[in-house]
Amino acid sequence: MGQQQLQQLSQEIQQIEAEIEELEADVEAIQQQKTETDEAIEALETLETDSTVQVPLGGGAYLRANVEDIDEVIVELGADYAGEFEQTDAVETLKNKKDNLDDRIDEVNAEIAELEAESTELEQQAQQLQQQAMQQQMQQMGQGDE
């Protein structure tokens, strides 16, 4: 029965570790979104109407273009919607987005910490079970010698 319990604990620990890995990947993806948002803010703060930009076409190719109106910036709000903003409002919206991303990172990190605590607890349980099993074995061996 002890072996069975150990196996179950080890399965649970593995599941938790897999969940932690997934959540860590989520944090990385959110960090990436934050970096992209920072880049957009930087670009918007640098550009003005009539600025010349090189638009990436993919494959390392760029096409020269002029910014027709810096006060017509489209920013995605999420859930498939986007709004058109003036330059300063667009920057503000992007900064709000960044705050939301920070909140999400905090939430996911809290979840990771919870799972790590759970995993540590299960590891301790597994260690105790192993020690008990070893003690039982030693006792049995001692009795066998008598």
């Binding site: 489209i74 709000l77 859930a79 498939d80 919607y81 986007a82 709004g83 058109e84 919206t93 939301n100």
Partner: peptide
């Protein structure tokens, strides 16, 4: 969706909107 809705409520109703 809640964040998008919150954001929507802070902007002017005349703002041109787009759907992806």
């Amino acid at each position: 969706a809640e964040n998008a809705l919150d954001e929507l409520e802070t902007i002017d109703e005349e703002t041109p909107m787009y759907r992806k």
